[in-house]
Design a protein around this nucleic acid. Structure first.
Lengths: 338, 338
DNA sequence: TTGTATGCGTTATCAG
DNA sequence: CTGATAACGCATACAA
């Protein structure tokens, strides 16, 4: 590779000191118009671009933000593999970062020690947490002074970091209320685990809908893994023979699994059983039946998270934000059979 | 943030020189057992971890690999948003990278100049190209000496870089042959554009199936954008009134769009029209009808690409590789109506 | 075997 | 206002 021009080359060509070049290019100090012109001229002739590595060393910043996903069985695949939710999030983050001159470092992290080390040795300027992590990681976080924004995380886990969320409680409520108003009474709530506050809030909203009608609240059905098609499929298989007439899922992905299992068992959706999803990923509009689901604006959330992080990094601490959700009624729900 | 221990701190604590510490930690030269022990002891006590930024400066390597996606309308979203193909690819790459001590820098790139600059100022050790880029980028590449592996790219575009592919021609053939053997004659081939060699090869395979039977080859239907649900949907809408009895799609995503459009037009799949996909992403097994498709092992491809890149970076240039594909017959295909 | 000195490309400090 | 010069943290050629 042809050696890249350094600041020294520019300085020599312009007949000034390295410092002068730096001043001009960073517009950090008054420089005589003539020097300035010479420097710019030389820089342009040599196609000079500052080296981020060297710059990082003195500035103690890397111009990189870290995007962290939880590791399940040593891979991020188990979390993100099947769900285009992450595609939208990452696309949004990458765009905001790139447009602000930052690069995105993507990694899966499991143990808190790794995390700390990773951040420090890379001199990351900011962090974005995608999803729920072991509580110990949040403890570790507090001891570092790196700006961070949490996504889909609730206060009890955060401490001092802004969090970007959606109104999960309302989402759960909307799904339940929709089914109740259709006339369903025996409704299952399918969660991937109530250790996750996101799931808890959705379940809370679900229960509120019942309570407001003075009905008893069904206990939740718990899938054994993360949001996966197969988790939904297994629960659907189990529920196919039950007396449930409707199933509320906490992701579109699991809803698809459920619907397929029901179909294989000869149970029709929505004629026999209604199913709702959560997220409204793109494909949900295209399946048959298309999915009645709780829509969240994923890219908006990702964009907001990245923007807040960058604001915070610039020294303007941003507040968290909770986005609204709305119910999108499609074909997977209908009144119960008589 | 509590100041991080540097090599100097370790040296002082161990009562040796900085150089000695470096030697021990990098195992670069023989060091007396005693010194070694003292250094390791001190390093461990101080929880010393070398700073990658500083290390990069002298070693001229960053321990980062860049994963590059093409930019469409200033965002990578338009390419990756709806397709879990990318989730699998990225998961696989991240895992291999992480396990080999590398971090993944993810970015969207459009103009060749940006690309060159990005690689140089970040001192990237290796590059992974996901998908097809403007030809000018390949030209720019040749002038740099950075190891790279191309994914889903054909020779004519590469030059000296190994490429990881699948047997696209065979995939196209399998899909067509399957439908022909079912008795279909009027089969549409839906491509997102024959500028992309991947699509060209699939179409070639498709045509071969016809030629081997001495049948005339249908001309392709071209969607106007990238692999998107909506691209498929629009073509499906157009094809709903046609005499085609089967449609071969070059991605599962577009196939879903097609199927939905047909459904909305009252055309049943597979009773009225058969549809095949390509990729076999996870959801294809769970939709109704489940999708007959050409399976490629996406994670295997991603893993291989990352491993080849790392091998090349270590000085053992790896060869490209073409993975096999196979037909997975599910519910979206059936013999034509009598 | 170990320590010293220098370079990597920038930015920050401090004289002039 | 400008320009040497010293960090920044690490690796390495060279000297001891």
């Amino acid at each position: 590779m042809k050696r890249r021009a350094t600041i020294k080359d520019v300085a020599e060509r312009a007949g000034v000191s390295k410092a002068a070049v730096s001043y001009v290019l960073n517009d950090i100090r008054k420089v005589s118009a003539e020097t300035k012109a010479r420097v710019l001229q030389a820089a342009s002739e040599l196609d000079y671009q500052p080296d981020f590595t060297a710059r990082s060393l003195t500035k103690r910043t890397s111009n990189m933000i870290g995007v962290i996903l939880p590791l399940v069985d040593a891979s991020i695949a188990n979390v993100m593999q099947e769900n285009t939710y992450y595609n939208e999030m990452i696309s949004a983050i990458e765009k905001v970062a790139r447009e602000n001159g930052f690069d995105v470092l993507l990694t899966g992290l499991a143990r808190p020690e790794e995390y700390r080390n990773w951040v420090q040795k890379r001199r990351l300027d900011g962090l974005l947490f995608l999803g729920l992590f072991p509580a110990s990681i949040y403890a570790e976080m507090r001891s570092m002074e790196v700006p961070a924004v949490l996504i889909d995380t609730y206060e009890e886990h955060t401490g001092k970091y802004p969090s970007v969320n959606i109104n999960d409680e309302k989402g759960g409520f909307l799904a339940a209320e929709h089914l109740l108003s259709l006339g369903h009474e025996n409704i299952a709530f399918l969660t991937t685990g109530l250790e996750n506050p996101v799931e808890v809030h959705r379940y809370k909203g679900f229960t509120r809908a019942f309570q407001e009608r003075g009905m008893t609240v069904p206990s939740p059905e718990t899938a054994e893994t993360t949001h996966r098609l197969e988790s939904g499929w297994m629960i659907g298989k189990k529920l196919a023979g039950s007396s449930r007439t409707a199933i509320v899922c906490t992701s579109d992905i699991t809803a698809f699994g459920v619907i397929r299992a029901l179909y294989e068992a000869g149970v029709r959706v929505p004629e026999d059983v209604s199913v709702t999803g959560f997220d409204d990923i793109h494909i949900s509009r295209y399946t048959t039946p298309s999915l009645t689901t709780v829509r969240q604006h994923i890219m908006q959330k990702g964009t907001a998270a990245a923007e807040k992080l960058i604001e915070t990094m610039k020294g303007h601490p941003a507040a968290g934000e909770t986005f609204d959700v709305k119910l999108v009624i499609r074909e997977s729900t209908a009144p119960p059979k008589q």
